[in-house]
């Protein structure tokens, strides 16, 4: 059993869980994910890591409450235990000297982009971080991210803070003005990652996205996480979760997320 050593609500609907998992903490790298299962009857769900502390042996995940399993997690208190917490899974993000890197986050991905920006920054790159939320009160970790970035650009859909609009609008403007960006890394809701990929496509700027399809085992055993990249079927849990956003079949990613839409209603009604 894995114990919750800290928990907090970052903003309405987005929570941060910190778990005591020394083995995972000792190996985790930016871009990795874990699989968590709250209790005996729970589902195995994937979450990206938002932070870790190798000395203390702790790992933190930011997650958005969207359905039954994430609600179970949100209901956990300090000292509670989860049955399964396995990782690191997937491939870590390739950290290199790229030049200027845009680190892009939205919803839970504001949390997940933080360790990516931190690692890319300490590898000697110039980091421009872009984060977005629907409204001012849904933004979190601005200071944390600013500290590992050369610049931070905030967008809100309602314009209540930063610029009005989305990360993808900002990227389109920056690239349109001729600013040089060598790499874009985006983590968050599928639609945001899709929009970012579309924004950078015509400029030919390589864009890495962290796909979040439905998963079961997370080790390449079931194929639930199938995505198509460059016309080829890939298992996101072992071949990814990071892929070139310009090569991803987004229609398929969006459709496969909805595979259990009717079950989700039943599950919600039953709980």
């Amino acid at each position: 059993m894995i114990q919750i050593v800290d928990r907090s609500m970052l903003v309405p609907n987005i929570h941060l869980l910190t778990l005591e998992a020394p083995l995972v903490a000792s190996k985790i790298q930016p871009g990795h994910f874990v699989i968590i299962k709250a209790n005996e009857k729970g589902e195995r769900i994937p979450l990206t890591v938002a932070d870790w502390n190798r000395e203390k042996g702790t790992v933190s995940c930011a997650f958005m409450q969207v359905g039954r399993s994430t609600r179970k997690l949100a209901a956990l208190k300090m000292g509670d235990e989860v049955e399964t917490f396995v990782g690191p899974l997937g491939k870590a993000i390739d950290i290199n000297r790229f030049g200027t890197v845009a680190c892009v986050g939205g919803c839970y991905g504001i949390g997940s982009i933080y360790p990516v920006a931190r690692a890319i920054k300490s590898a000697g790159n110039r980091v421009v971080s872009l984060i977005e939320a629907r409204s001012r009160f849904l933004l979190y970790w601005e200071e944390k991210i600013r500290q590992v970035s050369d610049a931070l650009i905030v967008s809100t859909s309602d314009g209540s803070k930063g610029e009005k609009g989305h990360n993808s609008d900002r990227l389109r403007e920056m690239l349109g003005e001729g600013q040089s960006i060598d790499l874009v890394v985006a983590i968050g809701c599928t639609f945001m990652m899709y929009a970012v990929s579309e924004a950078t496509r015509s400029f030919g700027v390589k864009t890495i996205v962290s796909l979040n399809p439905i998963m079961v085992d997370g080790t390449g055993m079931c194929g639930a996480c199938r995505v198509e990249v460059g016309g080829k079927t890939k298992f996101a849990c072992v071949d990814g979760p990071d892929f070139d956003g310009h090569e991803v079949d987004w229609g398929l990613v969006l459709a496969r997320r909805k595979a259990y839409i009717r079950h989700e209603t039943v599950s919600e009604e039953a709980s």
Partner: peptide, 22 residues
């Protein structure tokens, strides 16, 4: 088959919604 049987056996999807896996 691995996914179908894993959902049904290991994750006990045949007892959904008592078990969470659909």
């Amino acid at each position: 088959a691995n996914e179908y049987l894993t959902r049904a056996n290991l994750m006990k999807a045949y007892r959904f919604p008592e078990y969470d896996t659909p």
